Simulated scan of single mutants.
Amino acid sequence: MSTVASRGPFRIDDVAFDDAADALLAVRETVFVLEQNVPLEEERDALDPQCRHVVARDRGGAAIGTGRLVPPRDGDAPACIGRMAVLREWRGAGVGDAMLQALLRQARQQGWNDIALNAQVSAQSFYARHGFVPVGERFVEAGIGHQAMRRRIDRPQAIDGRDAAIAVTAGLIRQARRKLCVYSRELDPGLLDAPRVLEAMRDLCTRGAGIQVQVLLQDAATPQRALAPLLALAQRLPSVIAFREVADPVDRGYPSAYLANDDGGYYFRPLGHRLEGEAETGAGGRARQLAEQFRPVWERSRPCSEYRALGL
Rank of each mutant, 00 (worst) to 15 (best):
M1F: 13
A5H: 08
R7T: 11
F10D: 04
D13T: 04
A16G: 12
A21L: 05
L24G: 00
A26W: 05
V31F: 07
V31Y: 03
F32T: 02
E35Q: 10
E35Y: 09
L40G: 10
E43R: 10
D48C: 03
P49W: 01
V54R: 01
V54K: 00
V55G: 01
V55C: 00
A56R: 03
A56W: 02
G61I: 07
I64M: 06
G65I: 08
T66D: 03
G67I: 05
R68Q: 06
V70Q: 08
V70A: 01
P72E: 04
P72M: 05
A77V: 04
A85I: 06
L87R: 04
V95H: 00
L100W: 04
L100C: 07
L100K: 03
L103C: 09
L103G: 00
L104A: 00
L104V: 10
L104F: 06
R105M: 10
R105Q: 13
R105Y: 11
R108K: 14
Q110T: 10
Q110Y: 09
W112P: 05
W112K: 02
D114R: 10
I115F: 01
Q120E: 07
S122L: 07
Q124E: 10
Q124N: 06
Y127F: 15
H130T: 12
G131E: 02
F132Q: 02
V133A: 01
V133L: 08
P134H: 08
H146M: 05
H146S: 11
R152C: 11
I153K: 07
A164E: 09
A164F: 02
A165L: 04
V168T: 13
R178V: 03
V182C: 02
V182Q: 01
S184F: 04
R185M: 04
L187A: 06
L187T: 01
G190W: 04
L192H: 02
A194S: 11
P195I: 06
L198D: 10
A200G: 05
R202G: 07
C205P: 02
C205H: 00
V213L: 08
V215I: 15
Q218H: 13
Q218R: 15
D219E: 10
A221W: 10
Q224D: 09
Q224F: 12
A226V: 08
L231D: 01
A234L: 05
Q235Y: 09
R236M: 12
P238E: 03
A242S: 13
R244W: 13
E245P: 06
D248Q: 12
P249C: 04
P249Q: 11
V250E: 14
R252T: 09
A257S: 08
D262N: 02
D263E: 06
G264V: 07
Y266H: 12
R269V: 03
R274T: 14
L275P: 03
E278C: 01
E280P: 06
R286T: 14
A287E: 02
R288M: 15
A291S: 12
A291L: 14
A291E: 09
E292L: 15
S301W: 07
R302E: 13
P303S: 07
L310P: 09
G311Q: 03
L312G: 08
